[in-house]
Amino acid sequence: MSQVAVKKETAKPLLSVNNVEVVYDEVIQVLRGVSLDVPEGEIVTLLGPNGAGKSTTLKAISGLLKTEKGEVTRGDITFMGERIDRKNAEDVVRSGMFQVMEGRRIIEDMTSLENLKLGAYTRNDKHINQDIEMVYNYFPRLKERTGLAGYLSGGEQQMLAIGRALMARPKMICLDEPSMGLSPLLVKEVFEIIGKINRDQGITMLLVEQNANYAIKAADYGYIMESGKIVLDGTKEQLLSNEDVKEFYLGGGNEERKSFKNLKSYKRRKRWL
């Protein structure tokens, strides 16, 4: 807990999640007091095993929780100095926060161009066509694929999902497992583009990942979540050099702990809290 308590004190963060608890269906508690900060212009990653509550944290931020009978019962979420935990999903998007949901979730019976146009739904300015060109610059492959988006490959669909997020001209993008189901080569490509977008556009990113290796390297700061709590956080360097992170998330650690004989110790150490 001590590591959590000593939070990085910088200027006021763009997004700040404070002690948030989330309950689904009025009985199932998924988040048990999650706190995290995302400073402006940075990439922050949120790691953890299946069922830790990473996606729930993102949905609490983006307001999509309400579409799944989930509710923020305690704590608050502030984005650009404004409380967003009670807002509807569409109002959160309008305030400049865009979530790319897990599993890409593109509109499969529309073309990729129509998907991109939908990304700009909340905008009323005249620069939408310009931005479509910008997305094509990041993802030249999308321009060639004029058919239905449902026929795109997994990697192309992920690119389309990220491109669609860019079309909203958000201040911040929450990415839920962009590497899911992609080949290692594509994962590398997607992460490179995420870093590039962050640098070029100054878009702040909160990146939920299972692929810890890539995610930590792409990020400035990271949080690790288990069973609905943040159990560890630190800068990229701190996380990469942490023995527990190495062992549980990066598949490294010293040989002794990896061996079968020490399985008991592994099991005991498997959870921080």
Binding site: T67, N88, A89, R94, Q99, R105, E114, Y121
Partner: peptide, 23 residues
């Protein structure tokens, strides 16, 4: 039209539509 596309998106998947800012 923007609203036509939004209606198609909603017909396809309401949650995705909401994540795009469509009411």
């Amino acid at each position: 039209s923007k609203h036509g596309l939004a209606m198609r998106a909603t017909a396809f998947d309401q949650q995705v539509a909401q994540s795009l800012g469509i009411s």
